[in-house]
């Protein structure tokens, strides 16, 4: 007769093994759609510039590092503290040890906007700067880029609507 303690121990271990394996195939961290190298927006550079500045001002704990505007292009970069750690932009953001011991988590975002005909080419890069992490410094995997583009477009359209 197999004893209860053997069964319970075995079940517990198998459960943990399977739960560990399922984290490996956790699809929250996988990019669902292709990330383009740059985004093309049907708005002039000036509108996008205003939208980005508004977005930066809406962040707490941030510092604008570069605001370089030229005839045909614009470069903006800032450093900010990541508040919303639930979003799976990078595994470090959800690592409980990192959250517990190594706050705050900073990120540098750099955007270049170029004028092409009557459209704008927007290139976004965000890099995370955790104090310690299992993967060290790392780029955003695309979720942040799509999120920011949506924010920019939404701000521009709100402004137009007004």
């Amino acid at each position: 007769m197999i004893k209860i303690r053997v069964i319970t121990t075995t079940i517990a271990i198998i459960y943990l093994l399977l739960s560990g394996c399922s984290v490996y195939t956790n699809e929250n961290n996988i990019l669902r759609r292709k990330l383009p190298q740059s985004f093309v927006l049907n708005y002039p550079v000036n509108s996008i510039y205003c939208a980005i500045i508004e977005e930066v001002k809406s962040l707490s704990d941030r510092k604008l590092l570069v605001e370089n505007k030229n005839t045909n292009y614009l470069i903006i970069s800032w450093i900010s503290t990541i508040k919303n750690r639930n979003e799976k932009f990078h595994s470090s953001l959800s690592d409980p040890n990192i959250i517990k011991n190594h706050t705050p988590l900073s990120a540098i975002t750099t955007i270049m906007v170029e004028e092409i005909n009557e459209e704008s080419l927007v290139s976004i890069r965000q890099v995370y700067l955790p104090k310690k992490s299992i993967d060290g410094i790392s780029h955003s995997r695309g979720d942040y880029e799509y999120y920011l583009i949506k924010k920019i477009v939404s701000r521009i359209e709100n402004r137009i609507a007004k």
Binding site: T9, L16, C21, V23, Y24, H90, S91, D95, D135
Partner: peptide
């Protein structure tokens, strides 16, 4: 022993999985 196994698996496996996912 059961406690050590349980604890080790609970501690190791999530870290291993996270490391595996982020290093794809």
């Amino acid at each position: 022993i059961a406690g050590l196994t349980f604890g080790a698996a609970y501690v190791i496996l999530p870290k291993l999985s996270i490391a595996a996912v982020t290093n794809i």
